[in-house]
Design a binder for these strands. Structure first.
Lengths: 348, 348
DNA sequence: CTGAAAGCGCTTACAG
DNA sequence: CTGAAAGCGCTTACAG
């Protein structure tokens, strides 16, 4: 249906090879012929057929992107970053997502059958991509994981994500420097590594500070939005923590509400530091001091890593791992601890 | 690099044609041979090369998807719907979005050069896809527009979207039936047709009701979130409207705030009906009665329309246009008008 | 400077 | 029942 080199060759009264060279190889064809051929090609609306090139060179200039596409800003930003880097380099993303009634293996095969040059994925808890990743790796198709690290098959899967441990440390350091000593973490358990790492970093930093301690409580993921009971428990501890780190922004809402119910003011009585969730953080009153992630950059670097591997043609090189430090965004939810704690500390 | 039919043929000691037929054509090859070939193919991890099929049959089983991917739930749902229908049918979406520094024409060409079988697009205000759509249409590649209708090149561009006019009518009817006669529309101008259609439907319905009237005010899009001044103006009219229709959910926030500042209660003093934006609608207090759109279904039907066109092989058939009625979601923001309006109506 | 030939991976009539 | 040949659209040595 579409215009082919043959069509052009006939019209221009030259061979297909000549047309091909006129378009592709600079000085191979006489300038006059070349001009004429190009002119005709243009008139006929010729567009190169990348399928052919894909077969010939073994490069389709397309990559598979496996994500959630669930509609959160964070993931959209990651995709924006990937998209930008890919398209700038002449690549195109084939975007697939998990779906109840479509076997994941079929999705991977759909990519392999179209000979994608590589795969970018964000292995969220729900998407069980990982089990079938070897299908790609065995065929020497590079895979780069983004935001969340793959659990299995990590051997040659590069990774770009947030430096969660560092983020946890930064949160702890800020609270410690503000004078807090009784610290707490409110986290949510069943949602993969990032939460664990954030908590880990926080606890590690606190453990190095003289006279400071830290309790941690876990709220089931399903109840993150609605249930304030865990936050209330946390604030009912005696002695009560004066600085709380929540590993995900939404949890701050629970803490805020629980505090309000208990007559505690933020930040006068209680300092709170969050993680990510910029929208929520800026909307809360007082504004939530938080660690901003860099989803766009994560997407870009992930794509870059993949392109590097594709270009080097060695999917089994040394594994790359890039962690991006979250940015400290100071709002109004952190201050020094109350001078007169609910239960006076004897060591004054 | 990847296993080819030739590799399998060598191992199985048969011709490439035999291998091909063993896989593709049912009864063409002796069962024993077939088994052996398939077995070997499986061992070698053979995967068919769809690029070749794409060249041979002129079908790549891929379609271009041009959207915003800006991270709103609504668009994500549309994409989910498209994705589901496409993947179920063996197709795959190549997802491209507008980007400051990438010419749109290049994006379209990226799709054409990969010989996508069709294009799905959501022509939002920002994305100037439309100018270059003829590049696809001229090459007989079907295009289906979703959510927002294309302005130009509509000749053969099918469309699936919300029945905005009907939605506006439903909103008006509900307010009229609740007894309201002084009605108002708060809309936002610079954001393409849907808003106009909603308003149009509302005004048309009101104009048919005895003794009812309607004023309309437009708020610039850029200020939708922050600026309540237009809403305040609207509520300061004399006589004051008792029922307001906002053409987009977010605007309800402005109305709510303005009402609160002016000492007006929703719904006792003021009834409000919104459109879309389920998240906001359910979060507001009182809950916003609204017209729910069906983004997932819109995506599915859009993809279906495209697949139909691809299969029929006639990109120039009669134009399809599917409008999906928004669903009336009753919450708490609508009641009968106040018995004793701010400025007593003489006709009692 | 231009063309004929071989090849990329596969399918499909057509022979045998 | 299986294979050789031609062809899909293109590129790339190799001749002339």
């Amino acid at each position: 249906m579409a215009t082919t080199l043959k069509d052009i060759a006939e019209r221009a009264q030259v061979s297909v090879a000549t047309v091909s060279m006129a378009m592709g190889s600079p000085g191979r064809i006489a300038e006059a012929t070349r001009r004429r051929v190009l002119q005709i090609a243009d008139e006929m609306g010729y567009r190169p057929n990348m399928l052919v090139r894909g077969i010939q060179k073994g490069r389709t200039m397309s990559v598979g992107v496996l994500m959630g596409f669930a509609g959160d800003l964070y993931e959209a930003r990651i995709f924006q970053g990937m998209h930008h880097t890919l398209v700038k380099a002449g690549y195109v993303p084939i975007a697939l997502m998990p779906s109840e009634d479509i076997p994941i293996l079929d999705q991977i095969h759909a990519l392999l059958d179209r000979r994608v040059d590589g795969i970018l994925l964000r292995p969220t808890g729900m998407a069980m991509w990982e089990k079938h990743l070897h299908e790609a790796l065995d065929r020497k198709i590079p895979v780069v994981s983004v935001d969340t690290e793959t659990q299995a098959e990590t051997h040659h899967v590069d990774f770009v994500g947030t430096h969660d441990v560092k983020g946890g440390r930064l949160a702890a350091r800020a609270l410690l420097e503000a004078g807090h000593r009784r610290l707490a973490v409110l986290t949510t358990g069943d949602f993969a590594q990032p939460m664990y790492f954030r908590r880990e970093g926080f606890e590690a930093e606190v453990s190095q500070a003289a006279g400071a301690n830290c309790v941690s409580m876990i709220q089931p993921w399903a109840e993150v939005l609605d249930d304030d009971s865990v936050a209330r428990q946390l604030l009912s501890l005696s002695p009560r923590p004066t600085g709380v780190f929540v590993t995900i922004g939404r949890l701050a809402e629970c803490v805020y509400r629980a505090a309000a119910e208990m007559g505690l003011r933020v930040p006068e009585d209680l300092s709170v530091v969050g993680f990510g969730d910029e929208r929520i953080a800026s909307r809360l009153t007082p504004g939530l001091t938080t660690l901003r992630q860099q989803p766009r950059q994560i997407g870009q670097l992930g794509a870059q890593l993949l392109l590097d591997r594709i270009r080097r043609g060695e999917p089994r090189g040394e594994r790359q791992r890039i962690l991006i430090e979250p940015e400290w965004i100071a709002r109004e939810s952190v201050s020094s601890p109350p001078p007169n704690p609910s239960r006076p500390a004897p060591e004054n």
